[in-house]
Design a protein around this nucleic acid. Sequence first.
DNA 1: ATGCACCTACTGAACGTTTGTTAGGTGCCT
DNA 2: AGGCACCTAACAAACGTTCAGTAGGTGCAT
Lengths: 170, 170
Amino acid sequence: MRQLALAVELSVAAIYHHFPDKNTLYLEAVRFAFSDKEQVFDQVWKSDGSAEEKLGRFIRALIEVMLEDRDFHRLMQREILEADPARMQLLAQGVFNNQFCLLMQLVAEMAPDQDSHLLATSVIGLAKYYIEYQPLLKNFPGWKPEHEKPEFIAMHITTLLLNSFKAKAA
Amino acid sequence: MRQLALAVELSVAAIYHHFPDKNTLYLEAVRFAFSDKEQVFDQVWKSDGSAEEKLGRFIRALIEVMLEDRDFHRLMQREILEADPARMQLLAQGVFNNQFCLLMQLVAEMAPDQDSHLLATSVIGLAKYYIEYQPLLKNFPGWKPEHEKPEFIAMHITTLLLNSFKAKAA
DNA sequence: ATGCACCTACTGAACGTTTGTTAGGTGCCT
DNA sequence: AGGCACCTAACAAACGTTCAGTAGGTGCAT
């Protein structure tokens, strides 16, 4: 609270004048941080092109959002670590549900015979892991500087998924 | 430290008799927590069969370890969230390096023309995401109870990856 | 066998700092 | 005058850490 007060150039007591306690302040901060992220993805869905191209663009957008706003991403990680069921439901329904459903529709289009919930999860999981674990991955042999570049990661994930779809269809 | 002392039925000072400070105690705890996990994977590498079979077994083991010992998994998540560079290096080199290299070798065998660091990362990323985000994923439409079963998740990830390898080779 | 020196494992009580939170007061706008 | 936004200063609790001291065991000279 003291650090926060310093950052906003107020006294600690002034913060307590606006928020009842630390926890509700935190919750409101989380909600606020999430509120403006959705628009980035809407552009992807509005764009035209094949399903394959859309998937590529979505993955690219996902990675860029996470890399651009690291504080937001860390907040997200922390929330998941906490994993409070009530808060998970709030996050899912209030924030991510729309995007997840659109992604499910997209992968269902490309691989109609597969479980689209699982596939959508795979898409997000692949992208998220590259970002979250970058500090660790750096330390393993075989790491290259380009593994940090959004377009490189996006490319790898996209081709991996498209290849998988292709093989399944055959 | 006081909570820990209570848990092990010792005084706080007694703990400081065995460990110089909290940080090194924590680090040794992390190392210890992983030390017995490593054997699980060693069995996979010692087993015989095709590379495909081994990959399937590795993924299955990965998921089972993470699901079985949730405290350990949360510990890991916390470490990654913190992302202290010095500690990341210690974790990588002291704990995970061996397993990661073996996995890289395996995927290199199956897809020699691709970046094995990226592929190994994908394997772990897919598995980890399903576990970490289960509390969130439950809340999306299309979720089924079997999405929680290790063998089901392992199967999905394994076929996804093998399909991708197949397509690339063709 | 006894006394002494020395060790390890442990304790209770305190150190100084940081934590979330609040009581009481000041200045400003309406 | 009264309400609003804000302050200083303090509160109790929790934090990591340390310090002086003790119980019990081992080895050794007497």
